Amino acid sequence: MNVSGIDIAIQKSERKTVSIFIERDGSVSARVPAKLNDDEIKDILEAKEYQIFKNLAEWTQLNENAVEREYVNGQSFLYLGRNYRLKIVKESSGIVRFFRNTFYLGEKDQPKAKELFIQFYKEKLNSKIHPIIERYKDQLGVAPQQIKVMELQNRWASCTPSGNVNFHWKCAMAPIDVLHYMVVHELAHLIHNNHTQAFWNEVDKILPNYDEQINWLKINGSGMDL
Protein backbone atom coordinates (compact mmCIF):
# COMPACT_ATOMS: atom_id res chain seq x y z
CA MET A 1 0.00 0.00 0.00
CA ASN A 2 1.34 3.43 -0.99
CA VAL A 3 0.85 6.21 1.55
CA SER A 4 2.29 9.69 0.93
CA GLY A 5 4.70 8.24 -1.61
CA ILE A 6 5.93 5.48 0.70
CA ASP A 7 5.31 1.80 -0.05
CA ILE A 8 4.16 0.09 3.13
CA ALA A 9 3.90 -3.70 3.43
CA ILE A 10 0.67 -4.57 5.25
CA GLN A 11 0.46 -7.56 7.58
CA LYS A 12 -2.95 -8.40 9.01
CA SER A 13 -3.32 -10.30 12.26
CA GLU A 14 -5.63 -10.74 15.24
CA ARG A 15 -4.47 -7.59 16.96
CA LYS A 16 -6.29 -4.48 18.17
CA THR A 17 -3.91 -1.70 17.19
CA VAL A 18 -1.80 -0.57 14.23
CA SER A 19 1.98 -0.72 14.60
CA ILE A 20 4.49 0.67 12.09
CA PHE A 21 8.01 -0.69 11.69
CA ILE A 22 11.09 0.49 9.81
CA GLU A 23 12.86 -2.71 8.81
CA ARG A 24 16.64 -3.07 8.82
CA ASP A 25 16.77 -2.47 5.05
CA GLY A 26 14.79 0.78 5.39
CA SER A 27 11.51 -0.63 4.09
CA VAL A 28 8.30 0.18 5.99
CA SER A 29 5.77 -2.35 7.24
CA ALA A 30 2.58 -2.06 9.25
CA ARG A 31 0.81 -4.69 11.31
CA VAL A 32 -2.91 -4.03 11.44
CA PRO A 33 -6.10 -5.65 12.78
CA ALA A 34 -7.52 -8.15 10.31
CA LYS A 35 -10.98 -6.57 10.53
CA LEU A 36 -9.85 -3.30 8.89
CA ASN A 37 -10.49 -2.74 5.19
CA ASP A 38 -8.04 -1.00 2.85
CA ASP A 39 -9.65 2.43 3.14
CA GLU A 40 -9.60 2.27 6.94
CA ILE A 41 -5.97 1.18 6.94
CA LYS A 42 -4.98 3.99 4.59
CA ASP A 43 -6.77 6.59 6.73
CA ILE A 44 -4.93 5.40 9.85
CA LEU A 45 -1.54 5.36 8.11
CA GLU A 46 -2.05 8.82 6.65
CA ALA A 47 -2.81 10.07 10.17
CA LYS A 48 0.53 8.57 11.24
CA GLU A 49 2.43 10.21 8.36
CA TYR A 50 4.56 12.38 10.65
CA GLN A 51 5.62 9.34 12.71
CA ILE A 52 6.55 7.39 9.57
CA PHE A 53 8.72 10.19 8.14
CA LYS A 54 10.31 10.82 11.55
CA ASN A 55 11.21 7.13 11.92
CA LEU A 56 12.60 7.00 8.37
CA ALA A 57 14.77 10.05 9.06
CA GLU A 58 16.08 8.40 12.22
CA TRP A 59 16.82 5.18 10.26
CA THR A 60 18.78 7.17 7.67
CA GLN A 61 20.85 8.90 10.36
CA LEU A 62 21.61 5.67 12.18
CA ASN A 63 22.59 3.90 8.96
CA GLU A 64 25.34 6.40 8.36
CA ASN A 65 27.30 3.94 10.53
CA ALA A 66 27.03 1.26 7.84
CA VAL A 67 30.36 0.02 6.52
CA GLU A 68 31.50 -1.83 3.43
CA ARG A 69 34.21 -4.27 4.38
CA GLU A 70 36.92 -5.71 2.18
CA TYR A 71 38.76 -8.93 2.93
CA VAL A 72 42.24 -7.43 3.04
CA ASN A 73 45.00 -6.92 5.58
CA GLY A 74 44.01 -4.53 8.35
CA GLN A 75 40.26 -4.57 7.69
CA SER A 76 38.27 -4.73 10.93
CA PHE A 77 35.44 -7.17 11.61
CA LEU A 78 32.96 -7.15 14.50
CA TYR A 79 32.85 -10.05 16.92
CA LEU A 80 30.95 -9.95 20.23
CA GLY A 81 30.74 -6.16 20.15
CA ARG A 82 34.38 -5.36 19.37
CA ASN A 83 36.33 -4.78 16.17
CA TYR A 84 39.29 -7.03 15.35
CA ARG A 85 41.71 -6.77 12.44
CA LEU A 86 42.10 -9.31 9.65
CA LYS A 87 45.52 -10.67 8.72
CA ILE A 88 46.04 -12.43 5.41
CA VAL A 89 48.53 -15.29 5.68
CA LYS A 90 50.11 -17.62 3.12
CA GLU A 91 48.86 -20.82 4.74
CA SER A 92 45.29 -21.64 3.69
CA SER A 93 43.21 -23.65 6.17
CA GLY A 94 39.81 -23.30 4.49
CA ILE A 95 38.40 -21.49 7.53
CA VAL A 96 38.55 -18.12 9.27
CA ARG A 97 40.67 -18.45 12.41
CA PHE A 98 40.42 -16.12 15.41
CA PHE A 99 43.48 -16.13 17.63
CA ARG A 100 44.82 -13.54 20.10
CA ASN A 101 42.37 -10.84 19.02
CA THR A 102 43.14 -11.23 15.30
CA PHE A 103 41.31 -12.85 12.41
CA TYR A 104 43.44 -14.99 10.06
CA LEU A 105 42.57 -15.89 6.49
CA GLY A 106 44.68 -17.73 3.92
CA GLU A 107 45.58 -16.05 0.63
CA LYS A 108 43.95 -18.81 -1.40
CA ASP A 109 40.76 -18.49 0.71
CA GLN A 110 40.21 -14.79 -0.06
CA PRO A 111 37.83 -15.42 -3.01
CA LYS A 112 35.42 -17.20 -0.63
CA ALA A 113 36.17 -14.99 2.39
CA LYS A 114 32.57 -13.85 2.94
CA GLU A 115 31.31 -17.43 2.97
CA LEU A 116 34.02 -18.41 5.46
CA PHE A 117 33.25 -15.47 7.74
CA ILE A 118 29.55 -16.42 7.74
CA GLN A 119 30.55 -19.97 8.66
CA PHE A 120 32.70 -18.60 11.49
CA TYR A 121 29.87 -16.45 12.86
CA LYS A 122 27.36 -19.31 12.63
CA GLU A 123 29.61 -21.69 14.56
CA LYS A 124 30.46 -19.14 17.24
CA LEU A 125 26.85 -18.04 17.69
CA ASN A 126 25.70 -21.65 18.04
CA SER A 127 28.22 -22.16 20.83
CA LYS A 128 27.21 -18.93 22.61
CA ILE A 129 23.43 -18.94 22.22
CA HIS A 130 22.49 -22.34 23.66
CA PRO A 131 23.86 -21.73 27.19
CA ILE A 132 22.04 -18.37 27.26
CA ILE A 133 18.76 -20.06 26.26
CA GLU A 134 19.26 -22.67 28.99
CA ARG A 135 19.77 -19.88 31.50
CA TYR A 136 16.51 -18.07 30.75
CA LYS A 137 13.98 -20.63 29.54
CA ASP A 138 13.16 -21.88 33.05
CA GLN A 139 12.94 -18.32 34.40
CA LEU A 140 10.32 -17.57 31.76
CA GLY A 141 8.69 -21.00 32.02
CA VAL A 142 8.98 -21.76 28.30
CA ALA A 143 10.20 -24.73 26.28
CA PRO A 144 11.56 -23.68 22.87
CA GLN A 145 11.65 -26.41 20.25
CA GLN A 146 14.32 -26.15 17.56
CA ILE A 147 17.02 -23.49 17.88
CA LYS A 148 18.59 -22.44 14.57
CA VAL A 149 21.26 -19.99 13.45
CA MET A 150 20.53 -18.92 9.89
CA GLU A 151 20.06 -16.10 7.37
CA LEU A 152 17.02 -14.04 8.42
CA GLN A 153 17.25 -11.12 5.99
CA ASN A 154 15.97 -8.07 7.89
CA ARG A 155 15.40 -9.61 11.32
CA TRP A 156 17.85 -10.31 14.11
CA ALA A 157 15.76 -13.21 15.36
CA SER A 158 12.33 -14.79 15.00
CA CYS A 159 9.95 -17.09 16.83
CA THR A 160 7.58 -19.42 14.96
CA PRO A 161 4.06 -20.44 16.08
CA SER A 162 5.36 -23.99 16.62
CA GLY A 163 7.92 -22.75 19.15
CA ASN A 164 11.07 -22.75 17.02
CA VAL A 165 13.48 -19.89 17.69
CA ASN A 166 15.82 -18.61 14.97
CA PHE A 167 18.76 -16.21 15.19
CA HIS A 168 20.56 -14.38 12.41
CA TRP A 169 24.24 -15.35 12.21
CA LYS A 170 25.05 -11.63 12.39
CA CYS A 171 24.02 -11.70 16.05
CA ALA A 172 27.52 -13.05 16.75
CA MET A 173 28.75 -9.52 16.07
CA ALA A 174 26.80 -8.13 19.05
CA PRO A 175 28.09 -7.90 22.65
CA ILE A 176 27.16 -10.72 25.01
CA ASP A 177 24.67 -8.59 26.94
CA VAL A 178 22.89 -7.78 23.67
CA LEU A 179 22.77 -11.51 22.89
CA HIS A 180 21.12 -12.03 26.27
CA TYR A 181 18.49 -9.44 25.33
CA MET A 182 17.87 -11.10 21.94
CA VAL A 183 17.35 -14.47 23.61
CA VAL A 184 15.00 -13.12 26.28
CA HIS A 185 13.07 -11.17 23.62
CA GLU A 186 12.42 -14.28 21.52
CA LEU A 187 11.68 -16.55 24.49
CA ALA A 188 9.16 -13.99 25.75
CA HIS A 189 7.41 -14.33 22.37
CA LEU A 190 6.65 -17.94 23.33
CA ILE A 191 4.37 -16.39 25.96
CA HIS A 192 3.11 -13.32 24.07
CA ASN A 193 3.33 -13.46 20.27
CA ASN A 194 3.14 -9.66 20.00
CA HIS A 195 4.73 -6.49 21.37
CA THR A 196 2.04 -5.53 23.85
CA GLN A 197 2.83 -4.14 27.30
CA ALA A 198 2.38 -7.66 28.69
CA PHE A 199 5.20 -8.84 26.41
CA TRP A 200 7.56 -6.05 27.49
CA ASN A 201 6.68 -6.76 31.13
CA GLU A 202 7.99 -10.31 30.65
CA VAL A 203 11.24 -8.97 29.18
CA ASP A 204 11.55 -6.41 31.98
CA LYS A 205 11.22 -9.09 34.66
CA ILE A 206 14.39 -10.74 33.36
CA LEU A 207 16.34 -7.76 31.99
CA PRO A 208 15.30 -4.46 33.61
CA ASN A 209 17.93 -2.60 31.54
CA TYR A 210 16.81 -3.97 28.17
CA ASP A 211 16.46 -0.42 26.81
CA GLU A 212 20.26 -0.17 26.82
CA GLN A 213 20.52 -3.21 24.56
CA ILE A 214 17.86 -1.90 22.18
CA ASN A 215 19.74 1.39 21.99
CA TRP A 216 23.01 -0.42 21.20
CA LEU A 217 21.32 -2.20 18.30
CA LYS A 218 19.81 1.03 17.01
CA ILE A 219 23.20 2.76 16.97
CA ASN A 220 25.39 -0.14 15.87
CA GLY A 221 23.05 -2.49 14.01
CA SER A 222 23.83 -1.08 10.57
CA GLY A 223 27.52 -1.90 11.12
CA MET A 224 26.74 -5.56 11.80
CA ASP A 225 27.28 -6.66 8.24
CA LEU A 226 29.83 -8.08 5.83
Rank of each mutant, 00 (worst) to 15 (best):
S13E: 12
E14N: 15
N209P: 05
L62W: 10
E123G: 00
D138I: 10
K16F: 03
H130F: 11
I176K: 14
Y210R: 08
T160Y: 02
K42L: 08
K170G: 10
F103M: 03
I219H: 09
G163D: 13
L152Y: 00
Y50T: 03
K137R: 15
I41K: 07
Y181S: 11
V18L: 09
N154E: 10
R85V: 04
S158M: 04
D204Q: 15
I214V: 14
H189F: 09
K48G: 03
D211C: 05
D7T: 01
I129L: 02
V32Q: 02
F199K: 01
F117A: 03
V203I: 07
Q75I: 02
I147A: 12
N194A: 08
S76T: 08
R69A: 07
Q51E: 09
G26M: 06
Y181D: 08
E134G: 08
P131D: 11
Y136M: 02
E14M: 12
Q61E: 15
V149D: 09
N164A: 15
V28C: 13
S92H: 03
P208E: 00
Y104V: 04
N55P: 01
N126S: 11
I8N: 08
I20H: 11
I41L: 14
L86F: 12
Y210K: 05
A143R: 13
I20M: 12
A113V: 03
F77C: 05
K137I: 11
A30W: 04
Q11I: 08
L152H: 01
R135T: 05
N63S: 14
L80C: 13
P144C: 00
N101G: 00
